[in-house]
Structures are given as structure tokens and as C-alpha cells.
Nucleic acid binder design. Structure first.
Ligand SMILES: [Mn+2]
Ligand SMILES: [Mn+2]
Ligand SMILES: [Zn+2]
Ligand SMILES: [Zn+2]
Lengths: 141, 141
DNA sequence: GATTAAAATTGGAATTGTTCTTGATAAAAT
DNA sequence: ATTTTATCAAGAACAATTCCAATTTTAATC
């Protein structure tokens, strides 16, 4: 057993993709990796404060931006609501269940390619796709 | 030839879907119907001012909200950028060409249904879909 | 290990798109 | 014509995010 003390643990390397993993960035990332609930910056802030009581909201924003910039987490927007963040790097979209508030990750069915489905302009090169669904889950049937 | 004087014209009824078509709402709608460029509220404001010099930005926002609420126009969001507005009521998504800034309407290929393509949770009832692409158009081939 | 340089963090102020509030206007109903 | 209701205008307020200057931390160099 090694010396430093943590709880459920989840090893985060000192550096990911050229981004130095500071204490604050590590804690922000941990929240997103542990909870797949797509929290807002402010929700991340509240959770990180439990471990780093002096952390500032500006730092949460800085960390989230750094993580997003380096492709370690993804930023998810629903309309004009506060941005949410997601550690699932697989290509996926989001379904917001209006009755529970839960946000579900949505994946393409196997073998589906965007260009098979959408009528894109000639020569269009897609850098980024965002698919956002709103609705509700009908428990019966 | 009828009495009231307008320029290129585009007849807008006194009421659409239960929404009273005031002068301001009509002008806002006209901009969106004439130009398919997905303008922001502020861009609509500048254009409407040419015809209604006393209109206020608050009124533009009020009108846009009323039109969106009544399903007459659609609100389109790219990340956290200012909302844009679209009079195309067909089911469609948006492709933002980063090199020109142009926003293209994107339609599904005929016969494609969302549930054929996405792996949705059991019992999911989709109220609304938003598809947003970013990229560029390669002019050669 | 001390010194210097670079990067990250903090707290608060500033920004920005949007919404709210309140009083004035205009339109509809009586 | 009077009353009621809806809309509009102007500016204040708001909330999420970004910016800024000062401090702290980390890394590099001596
Ligand atoms: Mn929370
Ligand atoms: Mn413009
Ligand atoms: Zn996700
Ligand atoms: Zn459109």
C-alpha cells in the first residue's frame, strides 16, 4: 500500500496529452470521471470544494477549458443553459429527459455513418458533430 | 392593385397560429423569411430598424420569443454563441462552415428515421432534435 | 538548496447576451 | 367613448462566463 491517502481512488497521471495535471485539474477531472451526470461548472465547483476548500470558480472554469482544449473532456450545451461537461470521449450525443432531468449519453447504432444519414453540401468536411435530443422516457411498454 | 404601399412585398397575415401579427412581429418575421442567413437577435434588430426606426432591442427579443413560442420560427444555438433564428420549419439541422461563417441548413436523406440511426433508451419519446455540425467546405472535388 | 522564470490559481471586476420591470401606446372589447 | 387588454420602449437587472492583477505554486537553472 502506498503512502498518500485517498478514498475510492482513481489514478490520474501527472500529465495527459501535454496538459500538466495540477491538483485542481485533477480534482475537476475526477469529478467528471466518477460521476457521469454531466455537471455544470458550478456543480463541479461545489463538488471540488469538498476536497479543495480554497478553490475558486474561476479556476474551475480555467481547468474545464484546459481539459476541453486538450480533448480530455467534452463540453455539452443544451440551448442557452449553462454548459455541462462530459468525460465520455466516445463519439456520442445527449438525450435530456425532461421528466427526470437526467441526461443520457446516446450512441449511434453500429455501422451508421453521418454521411449516410444527412444530406451534406458537396465537399463538406465535418470537424465536429453535436446531437441533442429532448423528450421523456415512457416507463410502461 | 391594393392600397397599402410596400417594396418587394411578402404578404404576412394578421394572425398566425393564434399569434397577433403586429407591425414589429411582422417585420421581424419578414427579415427571417427573406434572408435565410440565420441572423442573431442583434442582426435582426439592425435590419428592422431600417423600417421601424423606433423599435427597441427588447421588442426584437419579445417578438422572436413570441414567434418561437408559436412555432413560426426556430431558435438555433451554436455552443454559447448568440442565438440565431431560422424561418425554415422543415425538420433540419445546421452546418456552420468555419471558413466562410455561413450556416447551411442540413436535411436528412429521404427515408431516414432517427430511431434507425441512434441507440435510444427504451421508451424514449423524442420531442425535439438538434443537430449541429461544424467544419469547412473543400472547394476542390 | 537557493534563485530565477514560467505557469497556474485566486478573488473580484468586467463583459455580454438575455430577461425583467415599469410606464407609455396601441389595439380590442364593451 | 370608455374600459380592458396586449404590446412596446427604455433602461435596469441578471447570470454565465471571461478578464485582470496580484499571489502562489511549480519547474528550470545555477
Ligand atoms: Mn449539483
Ligand atoms: Mn449583420
Ligand atoms: Zn456525454
Ligand atoms: Zn435553419
Amino acid at each position: 500500500m502506498h503512502s498518500d491517502t485517498h478514498h475510492e481512488s482513481l489514478k490520474i497521471p501527472d500529465e495527459i496529452r501535454g496538459l500538466r495535471m495540477t491538483r485542481q485539474r485533477g480534482e475537476v477531472y475526477r469529478i467528471l470521471a466518477e460521476e457521469k451526470t454531466h455537471p455544470t461548472a458550478n456543480e463541479v465547483f461545489m463538488r471540488v470544494k469538498d476536497r479543495l476548500p480554497n478553490v475558486s470558480l474561476a479556476t474551475i472554469y480555467n481547468c474545464l477549458e484546459a481539459l476541453v482544449q486538450h480533448g480530455i473532456v467534452r463540453q455539452v450545451n443544451f440551448d442557452r443553459e449553462p454548459s455541462r461537461f462530459c468525460s465520455n470521449l466516445a463519439d456520442h450525443g445527449h438525450f435530456h429527459d425532461a421528466s427526470t432531468g437526467v441526461i443520457h449519453d446516446i450512441h449511434f447504432k453500429p455501422g451508421v455513418r453521418l454521411s449516410d444519414v444527412l444530406d451534406l453540401p458537396d465537399g463538406a468536411l465535418i470537424d465536429d458533430v453535436e446531437i441533442t435530443l429532448r423528450g421523456r422516457i415512457n416507463s410502461d411498454s
